[in-house]
Design a protein around this nucleic acid. Structure first.
Lengths: 134, 134
DNA sequence: GCTGGCCTTGACACCGGCGTCAAGGTCTAA
DNA sequence: TTAGACCTTGACGCCGGTGTCAAGGCCAGC
């Protein structure tokens, strides 16, 4: 199959496929006229790449998975290098989530503080600190 | 004070200050020789900008805060527009955190699955499904 | 032979917040 | 007078994955 068909079946642009090839992820055989020629196994690799990219992996991080597939494994994550990337990504995610959680709390705090007490001598504050409540 | 001093006191580069000015966030008076001239209130604005940038706000999102300060308010988040940005950012963060959490679980699942059962007919699986356990 | 659809390579654009370099102006101290 | 520390504007580079355009080759059907 040629690049247009592979692109259509994988739901990506031809441009992306050429880019993956340029990165050494998706080498393509060539027909006599110079056209790229792909097989079903290439479709699987593209799908692996897309799945991982959609999850937030960098293109470079998909390399072990693709190579794992190329080595004939039934899935891209059947190889130690792929699992290492999984673990690394997990740690990254945990750090990122923790950081975002902190930021979230900071902003929520600011929001609560900013919405309420405008000034220590505001009417509300004055009323709260009145010495002779009715 | 000139740009170098403001940069030093705020802990940012002169380049950044010029960039903020180019974005219309930090207009500067000029001395006769064309040098930018800043005051203490500019230092406050730069600090406001940096605080928000460090929290993950986009430069553009700091605009209401800076304008709030310029309007003479005691803090950048004393204005409705700033609070709106806070709320918007909170929603964004919540969505982002949720998404990352999902991804995290997906990967953790993949990792668990990939590390364990290599094949339905693996020795372990065979042992687990033996009809006559000892 | 010609049209139109596919393919090729190469190159620029995008986004955001700068870093960094160039070429030149301004001021102070020795 | 000159060194050197500061300032000015302008412009290109980066990162990553892709859109998009240009200029041209290949091929099937009419």
């Amino acid at each position: 199959m040629r690049i247009g068909e592979l692109a259509e079946r994988a739901g990506v642009s031809s441009r992306s496929l050429r880019y993956y090839e340029a990165q050494g992820l998706l080498p393509a055989r060539r027909t006599a006229n110079g056209y790229r020629e792909y097989g079903e196994e290439d479709l699987r690799m593209v799908r692996e790449i897309r799945t991982l990219l959609d999850l937030g992996f960098a293109l470079e991080e998909t390399r072990p998975f693709v190579e794992c597939l190329r080595d004939g494994h039934e899935a891209g994550d059947r190889c130690p290098d792929s699992l290492a990337v999984y673990r690394h990504k997990l740690a990254e995610l945990d750090a990122c989530i923790a950081r975002l959680g902190e930021v979230r709390e900071r902003i929520a705090g600011q929001l609560a503080r900013a919405a309420e007490p405008r000034c220590a001598f505001s009417p509300e504050a004055a009323r709260r600190t009145q010495r002779t409540p009715p």
